[in-house]
Design a protein around this nucleic acid. Structure first.
Lengths: 239, 239
DNA sequence: ATAATAGTGTCTGTCAGACAATATGGA
DNA sequence: TCCATATTGTCTGACAGACACTATTAT
């Protein structure tokens, strides 16, 4: 038996103290002109009754990675996979969870409201909360900080990509993307600048359909399958 | 006793299986016109004899966060704190470590070669490896992937900030920053563009001294204390 | 003086901001 | 037709790329 094999045979991870590891996600969507985040009411201690991010422990028997854990937990709540999912950061320390030294891997996700609305309303412990109304929800642990970090990431990335499309349904108009972008950034943007980027990105194709929202019909677009997000070399709203 | 307090009293984290958690850092520096990464030869199994990133387990009695773990491990090897330290990503899964389901929090760090060189040469198991020579070093676990991710982060961020200054000594010249930037990006940049950004960043002040490297003396600069890194709204080398 | 490196001036190209002009479709 | 919204045209400004030009210092 090699040294390596002998070592592994006698190795017992449970002999060492380990931090409490969780995976939490900040899932955003857009609904009624507001940026919303998915919160879950905690049914068990610790912090029973407070609101928190959807997440939980890694299921080592089934999860391939913390991404899988995040997806599993989000799918339980929304019924579908988010259109966008990226790792945000980790948050750790001896005091953030009363059970002891803990570490959470935080993920940042986007989804179209229409795609998961039926499931959310049927899950009574989950709720979409407009980010402006977060003050009314006492958040568990350091989840407020995590949401704040996710918001910064979303806003920063919206400056140099068309990330808000991942909050829109499969087909959408320029106007919907403009509205989504303005809600995320919290200020109006130049439609012309957006459309220039939209063309330059190479990410989209026309469906041939069009949508009458108010006056003139607007063309409908979809994301080209298999095409990655385009990052621009300049920011919007550079000031 | 409240429900919460009762719950915490009976809670025993060790009853639940937990992933193996480590903290690893990718520390870069510049030396002899090359971008180098600090590697450590593994003295213990698993993967004894292979090279890996400096890192290890969280010391829950002393580390306030995984940042503290990263700093502690880096300081052991280099003798000083890195000039730049940010979280890179986490890497996790059942197969990346032979001991079982594991998760590593990866940090990305920069330091000036002169600031830690004496210590490194005296620590026989640590070595600066030029990134071009990484092929000669069989890396443990998925540390090759982690280094690749750190390199992408470094190069991307160099496009919209003056991040390579954190690889320079306390005082430095425009020429040294240009050289550092060119080594990181792997291609020449316009000195004029760099100096325009240097001025606009507001991050630096003259020392009053100057340095004769070859011909005309160059002014020496230092980072203004307490001033954060400046992010530009456009990339260099946008193409 | 010459060479070599430091530092400046300035023109061009790209793309975001601004907003005017035109197109379309329903009432 | 008229209005609201969609879409396009085009001018301006900021800033990176390019490169010529001037300044300084060791030899």
């Amino acid at each position: 038996m090699t040294t390596e094999a002998a070592y592994l045979k006698q190795y017992d991870a449970s002999r060492f103290p380990a931090p409490l590891v969780t995976v939490d996600s900040v899932l955003f969507t857009l609904h009624q002109q507001a940026l919303c985040v998915l919160l879950v009411e905690r049914a068990q201690p610790p912090q029973e009754g407070r609101w928190g991010l959807p997440g939980g422990f890694i299921d080592m028997a089934h999860d391939d990675s913390t991404r899988a854990t995040a997806l599993r937990k989000l799918t339980e709540k929304t019924g579908i996979s988010p259109a966008w999912l990226e790792q945000l950061d980790t948050f750790s320390g001896p005091d953030r969870d009363p059970r002891g030294w803990s570490l959470t891997v935080a993920w940042f996700a986007l989804i179209a409201w229409a795609d998961c609305q039926p499931r959310i309303t049927s899950v009574s412990d989950a709720r979409w909360v407009p980010v402006g109304a977060l003050g009314d929800y006492p958040l568990a642990f350091d989840h407020g900080e995590i949401v704040a970090a996710a918001l910064r990431r979303l806003r920063q990335k919206t400056m140099y990509s068309l990330l808000p499309v991942y909050c829109l349904p499969d087909t959408f108009t320029h106007g919907q993307l403009q509205e989504a972008t303005e809600i995320v950034l919290g200020q109006p943007i130049q439609r012309k600048s957006l459309i220039r980027r939209f063309e330059a990105s190479g990410m989209f194709e026309e469906t041939g359909e069009s949508l009458a929202t108010g006056a003139r019909k607007a063309r409908l677009w979809r994301r080209k399958p298999g095409v990655d997000i385009h990052l621009f070399s300049r920011n919007l709203l550079a000031d």
